[in-house]
Amino acid sequence: MNDRPVTPALDAALLSRRQLHVVLALDCSGSMRGERIASLNYAIRSAIPELQAVAADNPEVRVLVRVLRFGTVARWHIEEPCPVEELEWEDLQAGGETAMGSALRLVGEALDPARLEGRQLPPVIVLASDGYPTDDIDRAMADFFSHETVAKATRIAIAIGSNTDLETLERFIDAPEGRLKPLRANNAPDLVKSIKWATTAPVKATSSPTNAPDNASALAAESTRVLEPDSSVVW
């Protein structure tokens, strides 16, 4: 009897579940004080179970979440990639300026391929802001996009309120015409809906075992359909 192997040995170390990193970069500047930061905290708290359900539906993908806050400085709120099933929320506080450039730099560094082990799905990066960057956003944006993983990421921006730097958010998304636009959250219900959608829909789209020529366009169409403005109340 011939005992020679006829297929390659599958050492457990060779195979791996893919990882999906989700990074939330959240504006906690002074203008977010009051109802906005309360709504943001509520939105994330209520989005977590939905995100966990989406992840549970695709057990072949390991969803890892990190959260960064930016005010006068940018710093990690959840620094170590947290498995989504263990995710718990501690409320953010608002105050200070809008160091969005520093925030993007930190996100880019954290997603550098050299710092990620194992097989990665393109990450999901959500940036939510209600104002204009107060640091050097041009140089930060160039650094941010120099990371290969960032360039391939699904990038979602949420514009909170009516006095937002939409141009910067569009540069962050960097999508061809007809694709994703910044989501507009002009009141508390809109913000809750936007955060829920931004944290769950791209994760669902990315972690499902589908490849298609139009994933980003489909996501953009869904965002337009699902995120109809809730009311005429405007922050």
Partner: peptide
């Protein structure tokens, strides 16, 4: 041995996808 490889391929692929992509 290619004949044996053909017979073993489905099982090998199943192990790969079950412990990997799920696709």
């Amino acid at each position: 041995s290619l004949k044996s490889t053909v017979e073993a391929l489905p099982g090998w692929l199943r192990e790969v996808t079950d412990n990997g992509s799920g696709d």
